[in-house]
Design a protein around this nucleic acid. Sequence first.
DNA 1: TCGCTGATGTCAGCGACTGACATGCACGCT
DNA 2: AGCGTGCATGTCAGTCGCTGACATCAGCGA
Lengths: 187, 187
Amino acid sequence: MGRWQPGAQGRLQHAAMELIAERGYDRVTVAEIAERAGLTERTFFRHFTDKREVLFAGQEQFHAVILEALAATPVEMDALAAVVAGIAATGRWLDDERRPSSRARQAVIDAHPDLQERELIKLTRVSTAIAEVLRRRGVPDGEAALAADAGIAAFRLAFTAWVADPGEHDLPWHLDAAVEALRRVVA
Amino acid sequence: MGRWQPGAQGRLQHAAMELIAERGYDRVTVAEIAERAGLTERTFFRHFTDKREVLFAGQEQFHAVILEALAATPVEMDALAAVVAGIAATGRWLDDERRPSSRARQAVIDAHPDLQERELIKLTRVSTAIAEVLRRRGVPDGEAALAADAGIAAFRLAFTAWVADPGEHDLPWHLDAAVEALRRVVA
DNA sequence: TCGCTGATGTCAGCGACTGACATGCACGCT
DNA sequence: AGCGTGCATGTCAGTCGCTGACATCAGCGA
C-alpha cells in the first residue's frame, strides 16, 4: 500500500458533496472539504483549479463522448442532425441510474450563481468545439456556430425536463422532443 | 459643491478601463482602481458587487431595451420573430459610434475566462426574461425557452461579426444575416 | 439650530488561491 | 542491497477579493 490512501480526487469530490448537502455550497470552506478527505487545502487545489471545479469533474469525458459521437456521424448528414446525434450519445452516460445524483447536483448549481456561471462556460466550450468539428466538415462558419448553439439549447431544455421527470422517459427522448419544438419555433 | 466629487461610479469604470488597458485585467487590483478614482476599495464594492461587474455596468438598460421592444411587438407575431425584433432594438444602442469601445471591451472579456462567465450568465438571464414574456403571451414553455435561446445565439453571432466588421454593416444587418443562417440550419 | 440622511472612510477579518520549498514512500537502476 | 529519482503530499507565508461594523461629516429639511 502506498504512502497515501488512493483516490484522493474522488475522496475530495465525495467529501465536497457531503458537506454541501449538509450546509450548502457557500457555508463550506475548501479547508473543510480537504480535512474531511484527510488532505490539505493546498492539495485540494492541486486536484481542482477552483473550489467550483470539484462539482464539475468528469465533464471532460462528457465533452469527449459528444465529440466522438459527432465524429462518428456520416458526413452527408445535416449539421443540426449530426449535432443532436452527438449530444444524444450522452444518454448512455446520463442513464436512469444517474438521475437522482444529477438531480441533487443540479439543485446545488441552480442555487448558486457562481456555479451557474461555471456550468454555462462549460457548455459554451462544448458548443465551440462542436462548431469547430462542423467547420472542418465544410459547414460555413456562422451556420456551424448556430447549429452547435441550437443543439446545446435543446440539450439544456431536455436535461432540465429529464431531471424533473420522475422516470417516464430517458434523456434521448426528451432531446427529441426539444428538437421537435425547436423546429416548430424556427420554422 | 458637495463633499465629494460627483460621478464616483463613472470614475471607477473609467479608471478600471484605463488600468486594464495598461496592464490587463488580472494584474489590476480593486484597490488600485479605487485609488486612481480617488476613492477607497470599500467604496468600489459599494458601487459594484464584484470586481468583474465594473465592466458590465449599464447592462440592465440593455436588458430593458430588449424587453420593451419585445413587449411592443404585436401579439400575433411569431415567437422567434418577436424575439429578434426585441434584440434588434439594441441596434439603437450599439451604434457605429460605440463600435470601437465595444471592440476594446470585448477584447478584454475574450481574454479572461472569469469575464466570459459573467457575460454568459448575463445573456442567460436576458434569455430567461425573454422566455418569460413569451410564456405570458401563450407560447408553450419549451418553445418559449428555445425561441429565446435561439435569439440569443443569433445575437452572439451577429455581435461578434459586428465587432469585427470595419464599418460596412450595422448590428441589425448582421442580426438579420444570423437569423437567415439559423433558419437554414434548423430547416 | 438641530437632527437626520447618505455617500464615503477606517478597520479588522475570512476565505479563495498561489509560489516556494520540504518530505518521504515507491520504484527502477546498478 | 544500496542508491537515486519521481511524484503526491505537507508546510508556510503571502496576496487579493470581498464583507460587516462602526465612524465621519456635508447638506437639507423641520
